[in-house]
Amino acid sequence: MNFNLAGLIKAAVLNGTPLLFGTSGEILTEKSGNLNLGVEGLMFMGGAFGLAGAFWYDQAAGGNASGIVAVLIALLCAFAAGCFGSLIFSFLTISLRANQNVTGLALTIFGTGIGQFVGEQLRLKVGGNISISNALKGSFANPVLPQSLQDIPFFGQVLFSYNGFVYLGIAMAIVMSIFLNRTRRGLYLKAVGESPSTADAAGINVTKYKYLATVIGGGISAIGGMVYTMTIAGTVWNHTALSGEGWVAVALVIFCLWKPLNALWGSVLFGGLMIMYLRVPIAFLPSQIYKVLPYIVTAIVLIIVSLRQKREDQPPASLGLPYFREER
């Protein structure tokens, strides 16, 4: 068997990138004390609207469509769709104090419905599988770094051969980590998530922080769905492939102990688990069972995290609880 380590790592990173966005966005959300279980729905919306944006731009611009513009439009559409979805969530849970668990599940039903609907609608309009022109496809999935860097043996492939979203995701996670740990606003946000009443007493606008973190976090999560559709799924709408991605992202937040930097390697690990059955077939292990490996590992991770009750590994103290100032 010719085992290709560089190829496996590369595939793991590519498949982990949607998870990186999904997880990082949810980390930002959860740091504000909001548990948004609608990530699955947000990623569906991001995937469908990102594709729709790029597709309509491609149609409108005809032959002279610019790749960079298409990527920006897709990013913007996905981000906006995610912000819209999580704005609904924020309004219901922060302003109207609805139960976060159920609202998140409702958002998942709503979001997967919208994603499906937009994807199907495009398919019906075009008649058959929609796809954007090959030139534009390349601007999403092709490597962005110069060829000379990619030609370095092993490291060229493992470090420098990715599309732009991979590097964007890494930069985003690092910026988020710096924001959360090194800036005043980041510390305020964490204070809101740990103890909203204390933060409120200290003069921090709890509602504003919760809204901003949840809405922006949702937008970032949705970009993950877009990255999946535009790179891994090859700009074809495919809801079965995307399903489950958002839920793994939510579980990954716990795995990463609410730290964006852990999401960097956590997402690669899970991205690898997701495609292991294609890359490293094990004789006697049927692929259908092999495919559920990431979910089994996630379950085991949940158990291990709950066993090790270290103080610094805990979720934000007010996670999942609504804040009602008058109730103090």
Binding site: I88, F110, G113, E120
Partner: peptide, 28 residues
Amino acid sequence: LGIPASISDIITGVILLCMLGCEFFINY
């Protein structure tokens, strides 16, 4: 009418979201 059947998920989701929201006006 050629409208994707996933519209039912959207409407289900909207109903649920509205119902969740209206509890606020009952409890507060």
